[in-house]
């Protein structure tokens, strides 16, 4: 349990650093560390497959692309251009509303129900695969179609429109 609290502390600490860091590239590096702590959380929950996939997909691919994009567009500028006061006020109000909503949601569900796993080894690859392809086959396939359509949409947006002349 103490390991959990330590890792949870690190997660929150690094995520705070993500939003307070001045330099966007530093933000991404802290985000990488945050995801690394998530991987440890998954391992603590005995979900090894999710842990390693989180490691490969988020830390190894998505954040590399984040870093890639930032390095391309923001060539070593230490900070972003100053935002106007009105944007700051809007951001403050929006953030405050979100905080209120989150607190209210937590208030509404004071006693959270503990989810008891039927099989403590659910996170191992073999069990996970069997459950995904038996019990949850439909949601699994539907989500894969969703991803496919997102991919096709991205390609469609990226290609230039053919000239109509």
């Amino acid at each position: 349990m103490s390991t959990f609290y330590f890792i949870a502390f690190l997660s929150i600490f690094f995520s705070i650093l993500v939003i307070t860091a001045k330099n966007p590239v530093h933000s991404i590096l802290y985000l990488i560390l945050t995801f690394a702590t998530f991987t440890v959380h998954y391992i603590l929950m005995n979900a090894q497959f999710v842990a390693i996939v989180n490691f490969i997909v988020y830390m190894g691919a998505i954040l590399v692309l984040f870093l890639y994009t930032l390095m391309l567009i923001n060539l070593n500028k230490d900070s972003e251009p100053q935002k106007s006061n009105i944007i700051k006020i809007i951001g403050f109000i929006a953030g405050g509303c979100f905080l209120v909503a989150v607190v209210a949601a937590l208030k509404a569900y004071q006693t959270s129900q503990l989810v008891v796993l039927q099989n403590p080894n659910l996170g191992l690859v073999k069990n996970l695969g069997k459950i995904l392809f038996n019990e949850y086959l439909l949601p699994f396939e539907v989500s894969s179609i969703l991803l496919l359509s997102a991919m096709v949409g991205a390609v469609l947006l990226a290609t230039k429109e053919p000239k109509t002349t």
């Binding site: 590096l29 090894q48 490969i56 190894g60 590399v64 870093l67 390095m71 191992l124 690859v125």
Partner: peptide
């Protein structure tokens, strides 16, 4: 590790960070 192949794959995907961070930090 019972996900050894994926572990190797994860290490490979992390390998690029050293190059990226070094290349960016050189200014």
């Amino acid at each position: 590790v019972n996900v050894g192949v994926l572990y190797i794959f994860g290490v490979v995907s992390l390998g690029v960070y050293g190059i990226m961070i070094g290349g960016w930090a050189s200014n």
